[in-house]
Design a protein around this nucleic acid. Structure first.
Lengths: 198, 198
DNA sequence: GTGTTACCGTAACAGATGTTACGAACCTTG
DNA sequence: CAAGGTTCGTAACATCTGTTACGGTAACAC
């Protein structure tokens, strides 16, 4: 009974701590992601952080998994609400760009995870797994939007779309005044139109 | 006389040290970029590193500037050798993707600089300046390839092309077996074709 | 050759960082 | 109420990091 309540509390604490990790990653950069900084951002002490996670790497892994889980849930909600496959494709790709303050911050967090994955095989593996899942999702949406395309054509379109949205998110998150939301959306619409997916 | 020789030596040492920075950034990630690691990779001691650079930030700034300078020289060579504006556009964009071991490594280095720029206003400024120069170069090439396009059309095409190539480089550098050079080049050609720039 | 200067390797230092150990407060259980 | 276990804050520890200080050495001027 109480065990369940405690476990729920523990999970909520993990969630709060992981959100603190995101916050630091987006605001200060990965070089300042220390246990003490995480504890301060989460409003607790390093004792709790180390009690919930076995070490710093576990902190990053859980924060990465949570980001993936939230993105997945959001994307599935968007996908389910879209009236047509093509609308779903556009909406799903749009949420991957830096169109809102939230998604712009997520792009910075993503950059932090990317940098952390360099030279860390475990995080690199996680990165690849989540990225492949994302690519597979976009591929499914493209196939639904254009059922008669050959696999090779789907692959190139998927790489172009995922690359462009991710690249745009990176560029915009670091230079917001150069890449307005209108410019980003125009880019997406132009691409979908050029590929025959509008 | 000797002063000139010494200065040349000093610059060559700075270059060697900056290359050590790249190497660590690509191989170990920015979290392991320490003065001692740089000295070890450059085959010298921390005394020389600190003698050539006033501090760690200067190390990153110079390495970033040198990467930009080399990329610029390479791109201008490619551009000058291209027979047509459209060939120049394609070749310049292609060198920005992860098609060779060298450019793949550069994508990892670029990711390290990006992460370092988060939360560091000076490096973020440098990042923006170099990125805007890159965007302006691609825009010039697009205008040369399609002289009658309206500015807005150029802008969206530039964002799509720079974003897609940069995003592809990021994806491929972290997951080489998922993104072959053929796939990347097919993506680029498809995009140029779809935009009417082939 | 001798004094001088710049170069740079060695080593120290203060602060930060990941991690561990310990103990107090709290809750559960008998 | 008492015993025992869980939770988590405090503080210590060893290590690592950026930076500084010092000393030896080689090149140069005369």
């Amino acid at each position: 009974m109480r065990a369940i309540a405690r476990r729920a509390d523990a999970e909520s604490q993990q969630e709060r701590i992981s959100e603190a990790v995101w916050s630091i990653l987006a605001l200060k950069g990965i070089e300042h992601l220390t246990i003490r900084a995480v504890a301060a951002a989460a409003g607790c002490t390093t004792g709790l952080v180390m009690h919930r996670f076995p070490g710093r790497r576990a902190l990053l892994v859980h924060a990465r998994d949570l980001l993936h889980a939230r993105t997945r849930a959001r994307v599935e909600r968007i996908e389910a609400a879209a009236p047509t496959p093509r609308a779903a494709l556009r909406a799903v790709l749009a949420q991957g760009m830096a169109l809102t303050a939230e998604s712009s911050q997520e792009a910075l967090v993503w950059a932090g995870f990317l940098a952390a994955a360099v030279g860390d095989p475990d995080l690199a593996d996680l990165h690849r797994r989540h990225n492949r899942a994302w690519r597979e999702r976009v591929a499914r949406l493209v196939r639904a939007a254009a059922p008669d395309w050959a696999p090779a054509r789907v692959d190139t379109a998927v790489l172009a779309l995922t690359g462009a949205t991710e690249g745009a998110a990176q560029l915009a998150s670091m230079d917001p005044e150069s890449y307005s939301t209108a410019t980003q959306e125009a880019m997406l619409d132009t691409m979908l139109d050029a590929f025959g997916l509008a």
